[in-house]
């Protein structure tokens, strides 16, 4: 331990730099605009009651409302009534900064919808990837057929093509098909994971032939073998691939940015956050950081819970 002190010094310094933006993001999501502006309040802020100016402005009473409220304030002038109503509104509109930030995050923009979109898109991408890649990987690993080497060579070649790089022609093709601004546009380019095929093939290569022969002896067809024999044996590799795929697509910003323009109903979480940034003024730092925190949290929490699996999943690509 004593010999390691310098290592700890270096690593702690690194850790501070790594954690700084996370710290700041979470901290700002707790603070009032004033505290953010002045840079005070420590991590949690003072959590003093604050008044939401916009909310008050919206409830500025007009003539009719004052007239309607007049019976409740006997013997008061209109102006006095107005001030009383405003005070009431102010009381209703005041809240703790943390509540303000997070409630704004969910009410200013349909964040919940964005999150659901994110789950829907990432989930369907992963499912289709598995449905497409698993049979192909099985055939490439375990079936002998004319042209197998060519197909595998094609897989190896396609590994060279990052989908992000060919975004432009893909976008043109989708536009020609009239598919931009649809869920399909978000999912389709990712349905084929060459990496998934490659990974699963390598995994299936290590599955003994005897297992498959035994299944054939039991009368299973090739299709049934894929789903009832190979799929269960591939669970560890699939899990790793799931993590790889889900992390990549939950966090992806480039592709959704290209194919979804304007239609808020299709926004994925990163797009939603981007939109927030685009129209927010300075006073919206708090809610914006709250949104960012909400978007980042699911994966971080999942990672902290199942660290080993995540690290395995992410590094899997490096092992083969």
């Amino acid at each position: 331990m004593t010999r390691d002190w310098w290592k700890h010094m270096v690593l702690i310094l690194g850790a501070i730099i790594v954690l700084a933006p996370f710290y700041m993001m979470v901290s700002y999501s707790f603070k009032s605009p004033g505290e953010i502006d002045r840079g005070e309040g420590g991590f949690f802020g003072r959590q003093e009651m604050m008044v939401d100016e916009r909310c008050v402005k919206l409830r500025d009473p007009n003539r009719d409302e004052i007239a309607a409220a007049a019976p409740h304030f006997p013997g008061k002038t209109d102006n006095e009534i107005r001030l009383a109503l405003l005070a009431e509104a102010e009381a209703d509109c005041s809240m703790r900064p943390i509540v303000f930030n997070y409630s704004k995050a969910f009410t200013e923009a349909p964040l919940l919808r964005y999150l659901l979109n994110g789950i829907l898109v990432t989930g369907s991408i992963f499912l289709i990837q598995v449905v497409v890649a698993l049979p192909a990987a099985y055939a490439l690993a375990k079936l002998k057929f004319w042209g197998r080497d060519t197909v595998f060579a094609l897989v190896l070649f396609c590994l060279l093509i990052p989908v992000h790089a060919i975004a432009l022609p893909l976008y043109i093709m989708l536009a020609k098909l009239g598919l931009t601004n649809t869920y399909a546009a978000l999912v389709v380019p990712w349905t084929i994971s060459v990496f998934g095929i490659f990974l699963m093939r390598q995994f299936f290569m290590s599955v003994p032939d005897d297992l498959i022969d035994a299944a054939r002896m039991d009368g299973l067809g090739e299709f049934a073998i894929v789903w009832r024999v190979m799929l269960p044996t591939a669970i560890p590799a699939l899990l790793a691939f799931a993590i790889f795929s889900i992390v990549a697509h939950w966090n992806d910003y480039f592709w959704p940015r290209i194919v979804v323009t304007g239609n808020r109903d299709l926004f994925t979480p990163p797009l939603g956050l981007r939109e927030f940034k685009g129209d927010g003024d300075g006073s919206f730092f708090g809610p914006m950081m709250a949104t960012a925190t909400v978007i980042v949290t699911p994966l971080i929490v999942a990672f902290l819970i199942a660290q080993r699996r995540f690290i395995e999943g992410i590094t899997l690509s490096g092992m083969k």
Partner: peptide, 16 residues
């Protein structure tokens, strides 16, 4: 700790 940025949505962290 060092792996956290890999998991985090880069766009969110860019804004941070």
């Amino acid at each position: 700790i060092y792996f956290l940025p890999v998991m985090a949505t880069l766009l969110a962290m860019a804004i941070a």
